[in-house]
Nucleic acid binder design. Structure first.
Length: 574
RNA sequence: CGGGAUGUGGCUCAACUUGGUAGAGCACCUGUUUUGGGUACAGGGGGUUGCAGGUUCAAAUCCUGUCAUCCCGACCA
């Protein structure tokens, strides 16, 4: 049966809702796909549900092809498993917590690593059972500090999350690759533009992690790519260090008076005008004091020397120093270490404070930097001769034009929306929850895991964002709420009869149909709604019937062409 | 959590500065009209103005508090 607009639960809006800001959000609301239920919460109407179901179907098919089996966990979970992995605490305010009538603690799951791990532990105990890969498509809950852009970042959202379980690293690598391949097939089939970027593997160390980002100016993630094919998250970019230089013959460092120069800008200006030098911000070494807070709550300081023309990138710092929390040192921190002269800090050795440098600060490079004395800076301080760092901290911002780590050309910055993430988890959860199996020697070994996510509802927004014009949505065929949208344009009964008959023909050919059979609605309204709803193929059944013709209207190109009524199905879907 | 903005029928907004029975367009209902680009006309239903206090003869409007929403930032396996 076709979906009939005369009875479909739908009300299109002429005007943009005031609380929607990005195009995909406005159009999904105006075209009657979703309604806002609360901040970051959305109700799904029949059309929206149809699109979501299409996406889920593609995912299911490709998961099956990759050998993953579908399961389903509750979204409402008891506290215990999350206590075991420490995430009851770790998740902080982002976790929706609640209690049952007996005052027992529960949570709305933000993700399901624990449950999958426990399920496998529950049922399997031999290497013969592995590998296994399980997934579900389910609602997730995260109490985001700031939901935004409609479906793009909600507090409830649908995610496909898959987990692989293997006996060894080699198996994990294979499972990872299988999921990665499936993701490529999924996104290709859905018609979504994407890039695969290297992501930071976090505290796990060494594990592979890649994100699938859909390039978009409204994206929240910044990534870099080179013409040669390198792509990475800014957190994961490794700075290309220049070759070390010889320190032979370099002039001695000199300490110079530089009153009132607490910033790089004032310093450069002062050096050039008063001391007759010719330096730029890039010649200075800025020493940034950061406070790290460990998961146990221990606070310590670290100083990082970066070229003065670059800021420290907060995300890169978090990634580099994880699992510690990172923030700029505050006044209390400075008071504890009087040796740190704010605004005039140079490379220093202080008990309990590590001094790290940017990879660009190689031996033999000469710097203008603080003299650890108020109002004084050093000129010509040479790395490897005048100071040696405790290590490298690659946390300076990545810039347009920086060299790519693999030598494939300069990097370009772009914004993207994360639509998928594949990640070799390793043994973190298996260890925390005691997931072990017997190997072929009868020895207990800890299972290694991978986790693989796709943001299903986010994909609806991404697809809408990438496929619309000023009139409305234009869905890719794979996700359109119907294959064809038939408009009965006229008032005579024979128009409606012909439209019904045509709808039946499309359906007989296996095509789903939305039929605008509204009796007392003017053609203009029907055309506008057709554009708004965004089914790629529209068939107008009206005037042309006199000649035994209907109009095929390509929503994307805007072209309209008359086709014979009796060959419309073949014409459009041949 | 910091900064900014906004809360008035289902939607988009006006009235608030200067207190005096809450209004328009869209949507909805009825009738006539129109039928290949949001037809036209007439009639109609629907709002205790986010909430709670306060000032006043009188509060959408002034004051205090509170809640919510949106945007920017921080945060975000």
């Amino acid at each position: 049966m076709p979906v009939r607009l005369s009875s479909l639960f739908l009300r299109t809006l002429r005007e943009d809702p005031a609380d929607a800001d990005v195009e995909s959000h406005k159009l999904l609301l105006r075209a009657g796909y979703i309604r806002r239920a609360g901040a970051g919460l959305y109700s799904w109407l029949p059309l929206g549900l149809a699109v979501k179901a299409k996406i889920e179907q593609v995912i299911r098919e490709e998961m099956a092809r990759a050998g993953a089996q579908e399961v389903f966990f509750p979204a409402l979970l008891p506290r215990e498993p999350f206590e075991a992995t420490g995430r009851w605490t770790e998740y902080g305010d982002n976790l929706f917590r609640l209690q049952d009538r007996k005052k027992g603690d529960y949570l709305l799951a933000p993700t399901h690593e624990e449950m999958f791990t426990l399920m496998v532990k529950d049922l399997y105990s031999s290497y013969k059972d592995l590998p296994v890969c399980l997934y579900q498509i389910q609602n997730k809950y995260r109490d985001e500090a700031r939901p935004r852009a409609g479906l793009l970042r909600g507090r409830e959202f649908v995610m496909k999350d898959a987990y692989s379980f293997d006996i060894d690293d080699e198996g994990l690598a294979k499972a990872y690759q299988a999921q990665r391949d499936a993701y490529e097939r999924i996104f290709n089939r859905l018609g979504v533009d994407y890039v695969v970027v290297k992501a930071d593997a976090g505290a796990m160390g060494g594990s592979a992690s890649e994100e699938f980002l859909s390039p978009s100016p409204i994206g929240e993630d910044t990534f870099v790519r080179s013409a040669g094919g390198y792509a990475a998250n800014v957190e994961a970019v490794k700075t290309v260090a220049p070759a070390a230089k010889s320190i032979d013959g370099l002039p001695e460092a000199e300490v110079l008076d530089t009153p009132n120069t607490p910033t790089i800008e004032t310093l450069v200006e002062y050096f050039n005008s008063v001391h007759g030098k010719n330096i730029t911000a890039a010649d200075t070494l800025k020493n940034v004091v950061l406070a790290l807070t460990s998961p146990e709550g221990k606070r310590s300081l670290v100083i990082v020397g970066v070229p003065g023309d670059r800021e420290v990138d907060a995300k890169r710092a978090e990634a580099a120093f994880g699992p510690n929390e990172v923030e700029p040192a505050n006044d209390a921190d400075f008071e504890k270490y009087p040796a740190l002269v704010k605004g005039y800090i140079g490379p220093v050795k202080i008990e309990g404070v590590r001094y790290l440098i940017d990879p660009r600060v190689v031996d033999g490079t000469s710097w203008v930097t603080g003299a650890n004395e108020k109002g004084k800076h050093v000129y010509g301080l040479v790395a490897g001769r005048d100071f040696v760092a405790d290590g490298i901290a690659d946390i300076a911002e990545v810039r347009e034009g920086d060299a790519s780590p693999d030598g494939s050309g300069p990097l370009h910055l772009a914004r993207g929306i994360e639509i998928g993430h594949v990640f070799q988890l390793g043994r973190k959860y298996a260890e925390a929850l005691g997931l072990q199996v017997l190997d072929e020697n009868g020895k207990l070994v800890t299972v290694t895991m991978g986790s693989y996510g796709i943001g299903v509802t986010r994909l609806v927004a991404v697809l809408a964002e990438a496929n619309h014009d000023d009139k409305g949505l234009i869905w890719p065929e794979a996700v359109s709420p119907a294959d064809v949208y038939i408009v009965a344009a006229g008032k005579d009964d024979h128009v409606f009869e012909a439209a019904e008959k045509l709808a039946a023909e499309f359906e007989a050919a296996g095509k789903s149909v939305i039929l605008d059979d509204r009796q007392k609605v003017s053609p203009g309204v029907k055309f506008s709604d057709a554009e708004l709803v965004g089914v790629p193929h529209v068939v107008i059944c009206g005037k042309g019937l006199e000649n035994g013709e209907v109009d095929h209207w390509n929503r994307r190109s805007g072209e309209r062409s008359a086709v014979a009524l009796n060959s419309a199905v073949q014409h459009i879907f041949s």
